[in-house]
Design a protein around this nucleic acid. Sequence first.
DNA 1: CTGTTAGCGCATTCAG
DNA 2: CTGAATGCGCTAACAG
Lengths: 345, 345
Amino acid sequence: MRATIADIAKEAGVSKATVSRVLNERVEGVGAETRLRVKAVMERLEFEPCGVARGLATGKSLSVGLVVPDIADPFFPLLIRGIEDALRGEGYGLFLCDSGLDIEKEKESLRKLLEKRVDGVILNSTMSDCDCQLDLLDRRLVPYVLLDRMIEARPSAAGVYADNRKGARMAVEFLLGGGARRPLFINGPAELSVSKLRGAGVEEACRDGGLDLAALLRGEGDYSVESGERAVDSLLGSSGSKQGASRLPFDAVFAANDRMAIGALRALRRRGIGVPKEVEIVGFDDIEAAHLVEPPLTTVAQPAFEMGRESALLLLKLIEGKKPRKRAIVIEPVLVIRGTTRPRQ
Amino acid sequence: MRATIADIAKEAGVSKATVSRVLNERVEGVGAETRLRVKAVMERLEFEPCGVARGLATGKSLSVGLVVPDIADPFFPLLIRGIEDALRGEGYGLFLCDSGLDIEKEKESLRKLLEKRVDGVILNSTMSDCDCQLDLLDRRLVPYVLLDRMIEARPSAAGVYADNRKGARMAVEFLLGGGARRPLFINGPAELSVSKLRGAGVEEACRDGGLDLAALLRGEGDYSVESGERAVDSLLGSSGSKQGASRLPFDAVFAANDRMAIGALRALRRRGIGVPKEVEIVGFDDIEAAHLVEPPLTTVAQPAFEMGRESALLLLKLIEGKKPRKRAIVIEPVLVIRGTTRPRQ
DNA sequence: CTGTTAGCGCATTCAG
DNA sequence: CTGAATGCGCTAACAG
């Protein structure tokens, strides 16, 4: 059987309390020689403290929960690495839940995390226009931080986001700066906060660029490559044939993530439409595949690792009961210019 | 404060034992009317059982640990989805650790999981030629299953693997069948079991194909796109210029994963070498990017979701103390033919 | 500096 | 069918 502090105590001829003290590295309260003896016994008996028992006694589990909509989306793994990076140093463990883009599963995941008594939760919610998920957390007074997507009904919730409005704005400004007059904007699911913010950024850029907003072409996808392809197909007709370039209803595409942008790229190339010659494309995220496609994708890079890391650091502060200076951290995206846009000047 | 079974008991006018019985859905041992009353109180007080306390009392935490080498590698997220899928139904939670390709971090992760008292571990180890990780697990008698990579010193350990030898064989046979005579094999890190098995498969296919093994070109990478690129660059000289096709030292490339295959593809195209016209390429894994590159990558597909799922199901059996029929599950890979190889017949 | 005494929230005998 | 008692492994006052 695994050794317990009782075993250690008996073997070392001290009380459990003393063992507990050396276990927790309490500087005061135990003599140097005793400490050494206890440590030796621990070593010999291969003692390994029981996190469960500690959790029950202290009321903290040293673990946090993370809920993401779809871990297969290449944007998320980097977030996770950032989170892990910040957590590892503090000795926290990470409970991972994938909600599969389903708000019911998301709530179920949160309930499970609550039962596990995680000390806090990082939530990348699949739904921005409902706060029923947060009700669960609030009711239990469990600290949480939103990641990547906000919950509109809770503007004051702690969170870490990219500046989506600005990122979208940068993308479209760049396209207009290259001469585009009829951009197509393929947004993500309308309910998501990121979609609304990116939409706002797009409109801003159009207005500033002197474009008629009513004429702005719009499509919507679900962040998959296929949905990006469909968005273009539905505009050009499903025939694979090329139309005269002058007949194209758009001369540039901005997609709300790289996968859809790549889908658009594929649909265009399938028709023999030149990218970036006839149509320029800009994506969002900067996933690995972005520089692997041909031509490599110009995109608005989100610093995913950093976002994950910041969210974990923020959560740890909340767990410790500190009031962080900023409950909302906004991270600046960066436009990465590659091959789906023409060289400027 | 959160309600405990003591609160429920008092409120319902019963004992804690009775509350515990209804909580655990014990059919016998509690009257229908009492049960209803207790349930009503639980509802009203928003009772939520404490997993930590239950864990301490029962000795099981209803959670399993997973250690992967690098969650940013697109092969792993699908494994995780499979694992989650199998676990969710059984009410288990998943502790995730990323070892960052570092065996020391891997061991540290395992220790952390042991402290958390996970009921079992799924290990995708970063090192096949050492079993020090498993010593940790064995010493504590914690059930575990290896995933994707075996540990050579423990041939009888439970595990779920793709048939790597066969997959590699299929790939090379296909290349030779297309007329290749001077294949280049870019393997992964030499220490990994998967590398050795794939190497064996490659050699088998070469032998059967009447090729001189000594003439087989070999490269080694670390599974990154860049390392695949380097492998080709070092063979062709770092100059970006094209050599005469007849001067190429190889006429086909088989890479041990898709990312390196894509790297090779890039290096080739950068030189203006035709793929698949002058050189054919086959990868391994079938990650999403495989069908996004140009031309789309022919590859040996590993059913990652299924592998993850099977590993979790196997682990659950071990946790329940059952002796599963097969402690090692081998899953068949499938050759997916796309554009980096020429049409056959 | 060290030991004693109580819990933490729940499951599990064993009685009744 | 139900309740009282005990313990899981550890921490945390409180005394010496």
